[in-house]
Design a protein around this nucleic acid. Structure first.
Lengths: 150, 150
DNA sequence: ATCTCATATTAGATATAATCTAAATGTTTC
DNA sequence: GAAACATTTAGATTATATCTAATATGAGAT
């Protein structure tokens, strides 16, 4: 990923290109696996410059607000983050919570009438199921399902 | 909402119809506003029988697992819960995090090829924007946006 | 009706995720 | 280089959810 283009997209969005912020953005662009904040924290801190947890969260929030990064909430798990590159939908694994991209295709929007006076901004599709790592093993039946490492 | 039919849907799913569990289920069926666990806890405990937080969470988990209730995760906010009645999509307010139902309509599923060996279970649409309470006031621009009461 | 036992509930502790605070540091503007 | 502003930091704090181990209870069997 070209460092200069990262710098430009940050500054183009009114964000200063600090080493820490650059690190978060660059990591997200190089790792499309939808990491959690904790994973980003760990990965970034194996390199330089190191960041504190608060800085990671601050920068993720700024990047999301600037529209450069998308945050995806998953039931019962930590949020995951995703550099907005090509448009795509999301596949969420019901078992391990991992997120993968699904090739983009147009989805019809709800009729204006059914929305009333609400303002529609975005329309996103979440596909749920079992990822390839989880599928062969099928569904867990244990009542209190334990988290699974991603 | 007919008490007997609630009892039956619980038992039909292999869940004992305890007063606490019944209370959670009945509350969700009577309040389609997608309450959070905390809201359910509060509401249920204004009546009898009272439940502890753990019981509310246990029952919500059991109900979700039994397929009677849906959990909806929202970025940066607590999970919300929804008795599965008629099929519908969800509208999430970007500003206050509230969830409203959007009339159901069929959405095309991703091509099998693009999913690879993943198992598709469900396909849900999330519509984002501003709810009627938030829309007139427009988008907040404050950098550190505060939570808003729902 | 009562016995039995897996299931459910409880209080409180604990874990996890995310945010806040206040001070220090870095950057830009004049 | 001083003022104004933005960012980072360490650590405390909050919010959300889960766990633990003891106790209670519902529902089928007797």
């Amino acid at each position: 990923m070209d460092p200069e283009s990262i710098r430009q997209s940050l500054e183009g969005s009114g964000l200063r290109c600090t080493p820490q912020r650059y690190g978060v953005m660059a990591f997200l662009m190089e790792h499309a696996g939808h990491p959690t904040a904790a994973e980003i924290f760990e990965a970034v801190n194996r390199l330089d410059p190191r960041s504190t947890r608060a800085t990671i969260y601050n920068n993720l929030r700024d990047l999301v607000q600037a529209g450069l990064v998308r945050e995806v909430a998953v039931e019962g798990r930590s949020a995951r983050f995703d550099a907005k590159g090509m448009r795509h939908h999301h596949f969420v694994c019901d078992r391990c919570g991992s997120i993968e991209d699904v090739e983009w295709y147009e989805v019809p929007r709800p009729a204006a009438g059914s929305l009333g006076k609400r303002v529609l901004r975005e329309c996103e599709l979440i596909v749920r199921g079992l990822c390839t790592r989880c599928a062969p093993r099928g569904t867990l039946s244990a009542k209190r399902r334990r988290r699974v490492d991603t």
